[in-house]
Amino acid sequence: MCAASIPADDDRVVLEGRVEKRPLGQGSKSAHEGMVLVLADGSYRVLRRPGGNAMRDPVLEALEGQQVRLRGRIRPNFFLLDPMDDEPSD
């Protein structure tokens, strides 16, 4: 578990950090700028929302520059967020 994480229910964790836009996938066909959560130790996790576009997500882009606390699941290549409070539910 990450030093910046707080245990949550089941396999979910809460991560705290600053949301930034960074180059991702450099050198591949899927190179793009994406949103990441930069943790206190300088490491980062790529952010993804269920149903959100992996290349450009306006909901995550709106968080750029903010210090946040996000809940979700750590996956091998990204942090999959739980649905956010201001998202419409299905």
Rank of each mutant, 00 (worst) to 15 (best):
D82Y: 13
F79Q: 04
Q26W: 10
L63C: 05
E64H: 00
Q67W: 11
R12N: 14
R22Y: 11
G65S: 06
P23W: 14
D90Y: 03
I6G: 04
Q66T: 09
C2Q: 05
G34Y: 13
V46F: 02
D85W: 14
Y44P: 00
N53M: 01
F79I: 15
Q67F: 03
P23G: 05
D90S: 06
A4M: 12
D82R: 15
E64F: 00
A31P: 06
L70E: 06
P88I: 10
V36M: 08
P23H: 13
M1E: 07
D85C: 12
R49C: 09
P50V: 08
L39Q: 14
L63W: 14
R22M: 13
E87S: 09
G17A: 08
L81P: 00
F79K: 10
L81V: 04
K29S: 08
R56T: 03
I6N: 11
A54I: 01
M84F: 10
G34N: 12
V68M: 14
P23D: 02
F78C: 12
M84I: 12
Q26E: 12
V68W: 04
M1T: 08
P50T: 06
G72R: 04
R12P: 07
M84K: 03
D9N: 15
A4E: 12
A40R: 11
L60D: 00
L60A: 01
R69T: 13
G34F: 14
P88Q: 08
G72S: 07
V13K: 08
